[in-house]
């Protein structure tokens, strides 16, 4: 399995997919930070506002300084879990698009092993994407914060509070992506299904059936990350571990069904 994972990692980094996805994610992340600082006061601190006195920075209302504001700043890239999802989808569907799956199955005739290797690879790639985005946010956001008279150190101090949740969500969504891709091996179809769900269908489902939001992937993601900003708290969220297990369950259901279907599929 170790050999297979090293092989998968080499395959991943020798294509444009991870670099392009990470590049787009970082650019969007950078723009979000820019907007954040050009629009002072936009973040009123979220839930942390009730206890604003624990801030480290100077008492400038236009500069984020409360714990919650700083945590929200670091978590700017949290919605980037969609990129982790796409990364997972692409890691497996690229094999079918370019027919490299023929060679992969000659090397690894047991197809469930192939799917497991893809899951692990995607999880690692998802974690790495989260770490890179966190680092970029802390560095970029920290510099902007310092320029505005805020405290870089205060921001860095909040890193450990945000990082685990974000890494967890990215890993879970990368797994979900591989699961979806193992079932829908057509790359374009898989991407349309994923984007269609997260950009359109999910909102419709939430709108029709009240109270379903917390059971859907993005609600579960918010729970897992424990970041509620941007989401009406009246929806209520699961515990972070419940949300995590829910995303994991979604991913594994797809991956197991995908593996079973894949095992029977003719590679022609």
């Amino acid at each position: 399995m170790i050999a297979l994972l090293r092989s998968e990692w080499l395959k991943l980094r020798t294509t444009a997919i991870p670099w392009v996805l990470a590049g787009i994610a970082l650019v969007i992340n950078g723009l979000l930070i820019l907007v954040y600082f050009l629009n002072p006061g936009a973040d009123r601190g979220g839930p942390g506002q009730a206890n604003p006195n624990v801030g480290f920075g100077p008492p400038n209302p236009n500069v984020p300084h409360t714990i919650q504001q700083l945590r929200n700043l670091i978590g700017t890239g949290i919605e980037g879990y969609l990129f982790a999802l796409l990364l997972g989808v692409l890691i497996i569907t690229v094999e079918f698009r370019h027919k490299t799956v023929t060679t992969s199955f000659l090397v690894t005739p047991r197809r469930s092993t192939f799917v497991i290797a893809k899951l692990v690879t995607a999880a690692l790639a998802g974690a790495l994407l989260a770490v890179v985005m966190l680092a970029a946010t802390v560095i970029g956001g920290g510099i902007a914060l310092s320029a505005k008279g805020g405290s870089f150190t205060a921001l860095v101090h909040q890193g450990p509070a945000v990082a685990p949740g974000m890494i967890l969500v990215f890993v879970l969504f990368a797994l979900l992506g591989v699961g979806v891709g193992s079932l829908i091996t057509n790359q374009v179809a898989a991407l349309i299904v994923c984007l269609g769900w997260f950009l359109i269908l999910q909102n419709i489902v939430e709108g029709i059936w009240n109270g379903t939001a917390k059971w859907l992937p993005s609600g579960a993601a918010a729970a897992a990350a424990n970041v509620t900003a941007g989401r009406d708290s009246s929806f209520g969220l699961l515990h972070w571990w419940q949300g995590s297990l829910l995303i994991l369950a979604y991913g594994l259901v797809f991956a197991v069904v995908g593996s079973v279907v894949l095992a029977r599929r003719d590679i022609t």
């Binding site: 297979l4 395959k11 020798t14 294509t15 370019h98 060679t103």
Partner: peptide, 27 residues
């Protein structure tokens, strides 16, 4: 067993050497 099937099963942006390395490592 070594098999040569269709000649199109490569990722176009991967270098020849990396393609072979990925198979060698996996096997």
């Amino acid at each position: 067993v070594g098999a040569v099937l269709e000649a199109t099963s490569f990722h176009p942006s991967r270098r020849a050497e990396d393609h072979l390395k990925s198979v060698a490592i996996g096997a």
